[in-house]
Nucleic acid binder design. Structure first.
Length: 571
RNA sequence: CGGGGCGUAGCGCAGUUUGGUAGCGCACCACAAUGGGGUUGUGGGGGUCGGAGGUUCAAAUCCUCUCGCCCCGACCA
């Protein structure tokens, strides 16, 4: 393409509302323009990048045996009523009515549509397994869209749905999708990790997220330094500490602790090691227990894991923290003075808490704490469970090495759905005995638009974007200097352009006749991997100049050798 | 959803406290010079000051309502 016909629309200044680097660079490089909160127009260069990602996703999906279809983005509410999600989904689901007052929604995902398709099209186990996919625009009315296309409301997603008679078959396709995802993100040139994720009620290895590692990620990923164990922090098990609880050495005593409402204050004011303190969190109880609230105890330096907490039978789901007023009404003391001694509520303690001795905690009386508390001597040990988030340095749950925690951007998710939708919507096939069976389903998503942002988060420098070659909008840019005044430059630039085009190279000819500084700055901001400068000065020596976006010095290449030189670089 | 902030030219911002009829930089248009890292000069075009209502001789500025956008929080008792 020629820039004169394929306009570059760069911005010199950063738009005020762009916070993360990928959003800033996508705006500055003219890849996207904002239309409204969480809604973007993709500009010419941005679209080229998107198509690159889509092409790789398509190739690998096809290679893995998936079949492409294309479903509507607008979906009838009726199907969502049937699956039960019309009620469940909440305000993230954008709903509206057509002129006949029928209810519709803009699809945030397509389980209902695909399950409806499957029950119409699939009637025999002989048609299974099958894996349908599409690349579609979705809409989720996010509470807080942010970070540009990283968390936008409208986005492009590749979603696949597989159908099976048996768990073994589902597992096989699941594994194939897992492998396909590894290939896709590897080909895209991203630094990523598949991580075990929360998979709700389905057990086993039923769910993995694929995360691109980047500091701006919204998820915490725990991974082992000695094995390939990796898990979303929501999922990572905090093992019980090794060794027995130490024997008590002090008597339990009541201490006046005015103005001591936080763990930090307890540590600062009384010199108590933080590992000897306890946080007492009060949450709503489920109807399985005869109380309104349940107390959850974690060590002072640990964090409660809400997913783990929610899975406790005594705890109401979704997790709901008691208000200060509720705490005072139930216990007679406020937050900051709570503890397990004389607590009139069911209690669950974290594994780490269970092995503590001589510890301090609130006395359930204003401005008083007990120090020197010991389980089984001063009070019985309540039920023990894994309640906390793992921290860096914790032993890996697979027994190998210790955990590090990094931030990740979720770009893919593979998930075994089981029969949730097929049962709700009667998607059955006949098995070899002629008996109707609800199909097992898997679903597999990739956030195509988010992949673009994640790639930039991971690949940029002070001048702009550094595309992995597989995603770059163009491979080579020709930068002619003083184009309008030098017919030699003009002819050589044009000749090289035609030559590369004929070779099928994705080449951009910057025919804007700008000053070199401006031109170079734009090209670098856009992140085109290879640059060839055509100048009067160089041509007099019979040379062109090559420079890689990724770094290194510019090198002179004699005109006749440029094509083979580039071929080597592009290989 | 709770808290905070911001809406003035395409972008980034000043002007609002103390009311007097809108400005700067970049971008854009024209001409000229310059021509290897965002060059320079001259001359231009562009704004219902988010919207509605009110106060006033007079409102970007004060008041009320409204819309939009952004940030933080929504475990740490």
């Amino acid at each position: 393409m020629r820039v004169s016909q394929f306009p570059i629309s760069t911005l010199r200044e950063v738009p005020a509302d762009a916070e993360v680097i990928s959003h800033q660079l996508m705006m500055r490089a003219g890849l996207i323009r904002k239309v409204a909160a969480g809604l973007y127009t993709w500009m010419p260069y941005g679209v080229r990048v998107l198509r690159k990602v889509e092409a790789i996703v398509r190739e690998e999906m096809n290679r893995a045996g998936a079949v492409e279809i294309f479903m509507p983005s607008v979906q009838p509410g009726e199907l969502w009523q049937e699956s039960g999600r019309w009620v469940q989904y909440g305000p993230e689901l954008l709903r509206f009515k057509d002129r006949h007052e029928r209810e519709f929604c803009y699809g945030p995902t397509h389980e209902e549509i695909i399950t409806d398709l499957a029950r119409r099209e699939l009637s025999s186990y002989r048609q299974l397994p099958i894996n349908f996919y599409q690349i579609q625009t979705k809409f989720r009315d996010e509470v807080r869209p942010r970070f540009g296309v990283m968390r936008s409301r409208e986005f492009i997603m590749k979603d696949a749905y597989s159908f099976h008679l048996t768990q073994a078959s589902l597992q096989q396709t699941y594994d194939a999708m897992y492998e396909a995802y590894v290939r896709i993100f590897t080909r895209l040139g991203l630094d990523f990790r598949p991580v075990a994720a929360d998979n709700g009620s389905i057990g086993g290895s039923g769910s993995h997220e694929f995360h691109v590692l980047a500091a701006s990620g919204e998820d915490d990923i725990a991974f082992s330094d000695r094995s390939d164990y990796a898990a979303n922090i929501e999922m990572a098990e905090a093992l019980a500490p090794v060794g027995e609880r130490a024997a008590p050495t002090e008597a339990m005593h009541l201490v006046d602790t005015p103005d001591t409402k936080t763990i930090q204050a307890l540590v600062d004011n009384f010199g108590l090691p933080v590992e000897k303190t306890i946080k007492t969190l009060i949450v709503a109880a489920s109807d399985q227990v005869d109380a309104d609230f349940v107390a959850l105890l974690v060590r002072g330096d640990h964090e409660l894991n809400e997913i783990k907490a929610e899975k406790q039978p005594e705890v109401a789901a979704p997790l709901c923290f008691a208000t200060e007023a509720e705490i005072r009404a139930a216990i007679g003391a406020g937050p900051g003075s709570l503890g397990p001694v004389n607590l009139p509520l069911p209690v669950i303690v974290d594994r780490a808490v269970a092995v503590m001795s001589d510890f301090g905690a609130g006395a359930n009386r204003e401005a008083k704490h007990y120090f020197g508390i010991n389980w089984e001597r001063d009070l019985p040990l309540p039920r023990v469970a894994d309640l906390r988030n793992v921290k860096p340095g914790d032993p890996s749950p697979d027994g190998q090495g210790s955990l590090s925690i990094v931030r990740g951007i979720e770009v893919g998710h593979v998930f075994q759905l089981g029969r949730k939708y097929s049962e709700a919507m009667n998607a059955n096939v006949l098995d070899e005995n002629g008996k109707a069976q609800a199909m097992l389903m898997g679903c597999y998503g990739i956030g195509v638009t988010r992949v673009v942002a994640a790639a930039i988060e991971q690949n940029h420098d002070d001048s702009g974007i550094l595309w992995p070659p597989a995603m770059a909008p163009f491979q080579v840019v020709i930068a002619p200097l003083n184009l309008k005044k030098s017919s030699a430059v003009q002819q050589q630039a044009e000749a090289l352009y035609q030559q590369l085009l004929a070779r099928g190279v994705e080449v951009l000819l910057d025919d804007r006749d700008l000053r070199p500084g401006v031109m170079f700055a734009d090209q670098e901001l856009l992140g085109i991997p290879h640059r060839v400068v055509v100048s009067e000065r160089g041509l007099q020596a019979g040379e062109l100049e090559y420079k890689a976006r990724s770094g290194g010095d510019a090198v002179k290449v004699v005109v006749d050798e440029i094509e083979s030189f580039l071929r080597e670089k592009l290989a």
